[in-house]
Simulated scan of single mutants.
Amino acid sequence: MAKKPVIGIDLDGTVLDCRPRQQAVTLKLLPEAEPYADALWTLKREGYATRIALEKLDIAVPESFDHHWINLIEHPRYLALDHLLPSVETALNTLSKFAELHLITARQDSEGVHSTLSRLKISDFFANVKVVPAGSGAVIEKAGYLSVAGAVAHCGDTEVDGRSAANAGVRFWAVTSGQRSESFLLTHTTPDRIAHSLQGIANKYSEMN
């Protein structure tokens, strides 16, 4: 029996709805930002970092904000807010019939990733889980793993995923369900496929197999 092709799958914004966690941390640090929550998310989906997006909304951001954000964003209290995006379980089930799925995510702590996968009962969909350090080196780390794993494609929701796929020389399948809008992804990456959700990607892939 022929070995299934390997497909990389990003976590936050591709499998998980990461807005509730990011919003909760922001409002914990800056409660006055609550009336601007929707506008803030819109700016973030257009590529603005949280601090810059807040400043564009004329919200004063203390110097300590980034430090506290990093300390809180993967705290178990906030990780508990993560939930699956619509139809993700169905999409993973469909993709896993035709491919070997490898979860590749940039986080500070791998324990939180495995805990979330277990809580949401999706661990078994993945042949391997690779957690790379969050930050400026994430593209190189993700690309390196895609190359070593022999992946044929990588599916994600940000320019980091697009650049990782490009650096590894594999196809980039973009989803617009997460931290970047369709217009941003089309401007800043070169996706081979783009869909509103992982289910859309799964449908397109299953039609070809």
Score class of each variant (00 low, 15 high):
Asp124Leu: 11
Val160Leu: 15
Ile201Trp: 05
Gln22Lys: 12
Ala168Ser: 10
His102Lys: 00
Ala39Pro: 07
Glu74Thr: 06
Arg180Cys: 15
Ile59Val: 10
Asp124Ala: 08
Ala149Asp: 14
Ala127Trp: 02
His67Lys: 08
Glu34Leu: 15
Tyr145Glu: 00
Lys28Leu: 10
Ile194Arg: 08
Leu185Val: 01
Glu74Tyr: 14
Asn203Thr: 01
Gln199Lys: 10
Val132Asn: 10
Leu103Lys: 04
His75Lys: 10
Lys56Val: 04
Thr42Glu: 14
His154Gly: 11
Asp38Ile: 05
Val15Asn: 06
Ser197Asn: 02
Glu63Lys: 02
Gly112Asp: 04
Gly112Ser: 05
Arg45Tyr: 09
Glu111Gly: 14
Leu72Asn: 09
Val148Trp: 12
Ala168Leu: 00
Ile140Thr: 04
Ser136Val: 12
Arg21Met: 13
Lys121Ser: 07
Glu100Phe: 13
Gln23Ile: 02
Ile7Phe: 15
Ser118Trp: 02
Glu55Met: 10
Lys44Trp: 07
Lys97Ala: 11
His75Tyr: 13
Val113Ile: 04
Asn203Asp: 05
Glu32Lys: 00
Pro191Ala: 09
Arg193Lys: 03
Ser164Tyr: 11
Ala37Tyr: 00
Asn203Gln: 02
Gln22Met: 15
Ser197Val: 01
Lys204Tyr: 05
Ala168Lys: 07
Asp109Ala: 10
Asn71Trp: 09
Leu30Ala: 08
Val170Asp: 02
Met208Trp: 05
Lys204Asn: 12
Leu11Ser: 05
Leu85Pro: 00
Arg51Met: 13
Glu63Gln: 05
Leu101Gln: 02
Lys4Tyr: 14
Val160Asn: 15
Thr189Lys: 07
Leu84Trp: 06
Pro20Gln: 13
Leu54Tyr: 14
Thr26Asn: 06
Arg193Pro: 07
Arg163Leu: 14
Asp10Arg: 10
Ala165Ser: 10
Val175Arg: 14
Gln199Ser: 08
Ser181His: 13
His188Ala: 08
Gln23Phe: 06
Gly150Lys: 11
Ala2Ser: 04
Gly112Ile: 08
Lys97Phe: 00
Ala24Leu: 11
